[in-house]
Amino acid sequence: MDFAGEILVVVALTAGGIFGLVGSLGLLKLDNPMARLHAPTKASTLGVGSVLVASVLYAAFFGGRASVHEILIMIFLFMTAPVSANFIAKAHLHRHVKGQDLPPAEPDSHWAHVGDDGDEDGPENG
């Protein structure tokens, strides 16, 4: 029983380590800001998720109790990670991307945060 527990914890930890490593590697290897943005969203979902699963398993097998902190961490992380990624993407769009490089925003006239044709009276909702 203990042995099976050890194996499960090790597998989860290793998977977390690998995905974290690949995420960081992607940050180095990819060559433009939007592509780079994909790497950290990966590290924070499955990478951190696996480490948290390992923690739950460890508490269940060796601590002799159920631990639910990890589920909370995962929920908070999953709620906040997309917000920061979205901010970075919007800053990039606003400063470096022209409207004509993007697909049309049908049925509306334009994208909310793309700074083309120089007019400053864009919509104010975020």
């Binding site: 969203t41 993407a89 697909p103 049925p107 509306d108």
Partner: peptide
């Protein structure tokens, strides 16, 4: 929906159209 798209790796939701009828997604 936008958060889900960002959480699944390979796609990041970047922007909403001016009236909110269209979502801009970047695909790796």
């Amino acid at each position: 929906l936008a958060s889900t798209i960002t959480l699944t790796p390979g796609t990041v939701s970047a922007d909403l159209s001016s009236e909110g009828h269209c979502l801009l997604v970047h695909c790796l």
